[in-house]
């Protein structure tokens, strides 16, 4: 019985230490694990102009405009701050106004010149009829609240 107890304590203590070490490492690298920054976070930082950066948020309703030559202009918002973006290229299928998006590029005179635009998906899955019914019955806003709670869209974005 003795060696078994010893091995058990050894494994438990080892796992505990390992968990603590992992937590410390993750806390230390917290900033570099983040995939994108919200407009508020970007504007709070003083960024060197040549730095490539990812901005994430919602495509502001009514901000999408097509310019000649396949270039699009839109604004990324977290409903506190907005950042204007220009992009030339193919947009992903999920890209649309009001939808989560991550744009990567460099700032030029306050405009993010994106070389990559990725759409984000949320955790809601439903057939189109259900989505329509939800919108009609006014429950859509409830769902936006739920999305916000899950960190899908920035805090305050659904208000």
């Amino acid at each position: 019985m003795k060696p078994k107890r010893r091995r058990l304590t050894f494994v438990l203590i080892g796992m505990g230490l390992l968990g603590a070490a992992a937590a410390l490492v993750l806390a230390a690298f917290r900033d570099s694990i983040v995939f994108f920054y919200s407009p508020t976070e970007i504007l709070a930082k003083a960024l060197p102009a040549e730095q490539r950066i990812r901005v994430g948020g919602l495509v502001e309703e009514g901000s999408l405009e097509k310019v000649a030559g396949g270039t699009v202009r839109f604004k990324i918002t977290d409903l506190a701050e907005t950042i204007p973006v220009t992009y030339t290229g193919i947009l992903p299928d999920l890209f649309r106004e009001g939808q989560g998006v991550v744009a990567q590029g460099r700032f030029q005179e306050g405009v993010l010149k994106a070389d990559e635009v990725l759409a984000k998906h949320d955790e809601n899955y439903m057939p189109p009829e259900v989505a329509d019914a939800l919108k009609k019955s006014g429950q859509w806003e409830h769902m936006k609240d739920a999305m916000e709670g899950a960190g899908q869209i920035p805090k305050g974005a659904a208000k």
Binding site: R30, I33, V34, F35, F36, Y37, S38, G56, V102, L118, K120, H121, D122, E123, N124, Y125, M126, P127, V130, M143, A146, G149, A150, G151, Q152
Partner: peptide
């Protein structure tokens, strides 16, 4: 963290958000 990947839809607080 902020990720490109969406959060959980089935095993999450408040029940699944899948039809």
């Amino acid at each position: 963290w902020n990720t490109l990947h969406q959060p959980a839809s089935v095993f999450k607080a408040g029940g699944p958000s899948i039809d």
